[in-house]
Amino acid sequence: MPNGSLESHLFQKNPKILDWKTRCQIALGIARGLEYLHEKCRDCIIHCDIKPENILLDAGYNPKISDSGLAKLLGRDFSRVLTTIKGTRGYLAPEWISGIAITAKADVFSYGMMLFEIVSGRRNWEIKYDRMNDYFPAQVMKKLSRGEELLTLLDEKLEQNADIEELTRVCKVACCCIQDDEGDRPPMKSVVQILEGALDVIMPPIPSFIENIAENPEEGSPTPGF
């Protein structure tokens, strides 16, 4: 792919800064790709390793989901698949870490974690001054629950140039996708509809692992995948 990986644009020094419109296009394209894998193939395909490194960008910055080395086929007559191979730390759903057979909702969790990184332009977990409250998903949820300004959390390279309604929608979708209980996470079909503006989204509850960080900042784990 001529424009490399999403990871190279978000976290590495790259002369091309992805503007907000392009980031929204990429987020929606990935959601559509996952919807296809989960719901439109003959068998459900769980990618199992959704992260910026595995999103490649073509000449028009349209995303392509790559690296299916960990992918699992889930026949339509089955609801779960057991896999002992884990994806990338930081993007793993809590049930997967617990050793439970997974569903396509494991990809939804990873997608939500990646959405936060598309917004911030940095890894979700970058400790500054040894403060646990720098965990980006926790910052987003705190501001959303308080009705505070979100533009201050946007990737500083964008200089707050983003549509606030779109930004709020993307952040709420990310919060929905990382819910503790997989049943509370939306299917990718709904994620696509929300990002397209065809479906409303409400602010979900704060996941327990984020609440634990807030209550025990010196002891909490930044994410169930770390």
Rank of each mutant, 00 (worst) to 15 (best):
G197A: 10
A198S: 13
V108D: 00
C48V: 06
E196P: 07
P224G: 05
A101F: 03
N3T: 08
S98A: 15
S190W: 09
P204F: 11
S208G: 14
L151F: 09
K128A: 07
E117D: 04
K64V: 01
D180C: 07
P137C: 09
G60R: 12
Y111A: 00
S8E: 09
I45D: 05
P224V: 05
F78W: 10
G87L: 01
A71S: 15
N124H: 06
I178H: 01
K128P: 00
V140W: 00
E165L: 12
I213R: 08
G121L: 05
R42K: 14
L18R: 00
L154R: 09
E211F: 11
L153C: 12
L199S: 06
D163V: 10
G69P: 07
K21H: 12
G75K: 11
F209T: 04
A162M: 04
A31S: 13
E218D: 15
P187G: 08
H9M: 03
K16P: 00
E165H: 12
L28N: 08
L158T: 10
P217A: 08
N14W: 02
P217I: 13
A93D: 09
K143S: 13
I178Y: 01
L70Y: 10
A31N: 03
F136Y: 10
P52G: 05
L144R: 10
G75C: 07
S208L: 14
M1H: 13
E148A: 15
Q193K: 15
E148N: 11
K72N: 05
R76T: 14
P137V: 03
R169D: 00
I206Q: 03
Y91W: 13
I202D: 14
E166Y: 08
T103P: 02
K40N: 14
I206Y: 01
V191T: 04
L154G: 04
S145H: 15
G33R: 01
R89T: 09
G75P: 06
D67M: 09
V140A: 02
A27N: 04
F136M: 04
P205S: 14
D49Q: 11
N124I: 00
M188A: 03
R123Q: 09
I118G: 02
D184S: 12
S110I: 00
S208Q: 14
D43M: 08
D43K: 14
I97A: 07
L82Y: 11
E117N: 08
D200H: 11
L195T: 04
G183I: 01
A27F: 03
D200K: 13
E218G: 08
G112R: 02
S190C: 10
D130F: 14
A174S: 11
E148L: 15
Q25G: 07
G90P: 02
V81N: 05
K157E: 14
L56P: 05
P186I: 13
